[in-house]
Amino acid sequence: MSLQDNEKEMEKDKENKNTNEILADALADKSSRRSFIKNLSIGAAAASATLVTGCVPGADAAVSGEMRLRWQEFFKKNYRLMTEEEKEQTVSRLERLAALKDGLELQIGSEPPLPKVLYGYAFNITRCEGFMECVTACIKENNLDRKTHTQYIRIFEMEPGQLDPSTGDGKYFHEVPVENKFYMGTQCFHCENAPCTKACPTKATWREPDGIVVVDYDWCIGCRYCQAACPYFGRRFNWGKAEIPKEEITTKQHYLGNRLRPMGKMEKCTFCIQRTRKGRLPACVEACPTGSRVFGNLLDPDSEIRYVLKHKKVFRMKEELGTEPKFWYFID
């Protein structure tokens, strides 16, 4: 009996302690401006919902669920400030929202950069024959807007002797390769010293530790300063939500990569972050029928990209700007 009593008392103590802790936490947690606005706006939303529908929100479980997810999404942090847990939460929220709104089954990831990896890219201007398979693969992989014909990669048909793509023809559509012409591809060069990241007023774009320059689409305000800052025309602005046939949507996505972007965001090549962080090649490299595209780890002395840098004549675009792009052109 006495033993049991003791146990009961201990349990009571525990409960008391728990409630005390919770209270202390609640008291210590100063209501920040953000949480105040959050509560206020949730209250406002609830009030407006009661006004419109004439009933308490929550009657329709699905709608209220979506509403809650959207509010939580609205008040999330910048990706770089999130803890691993918060990253997982936002990713699962995005997945649920996509399922609720569009009936899409997505797998959005938030894989961190791999240790001791710095991605680099090389493009063989002797081998490229302008088939543009890379462009179609990129459109498909990165869920680019089919309506406005957005492309992260451009291929230019160049006169011999020229090395500046602005002198080339980027709109060719005829049988390729043409005699006495060569082809040169451009995309985001993922500069080590990227000017675009410095121009962003909301710190929505940055260089990841593995060298990939990424955009947090939910912190981008669409001011396009980064587009103006980029000397390589590597960034694309979406004027609307991407229009893609449902069966063509790539469902394996990454938060910083090919997930379906909201309207009015800056987007660009991410070296297919959703693939490369799992050891796969970017879609353009895998699609290239001529083997002009070389991708690999710059910190691996045995990698193909290091072989190219060591044994081939390489150059980069606008090297004199000091942006240090990690994208080299080379000739055989």
């Binding site: 088939f131 559509f173 390729v176 025309f233």
Partner: peptide
């Protein structure tokens, strides 16, 4: 040698 053919897509001006 790779056969001549049409590119897989085309680009519109930026």
């Amino acid at each position: 040698r790779f056969a001549k053919r049409f590119p897989a897509t085309y680009s519109v001006p930026l």
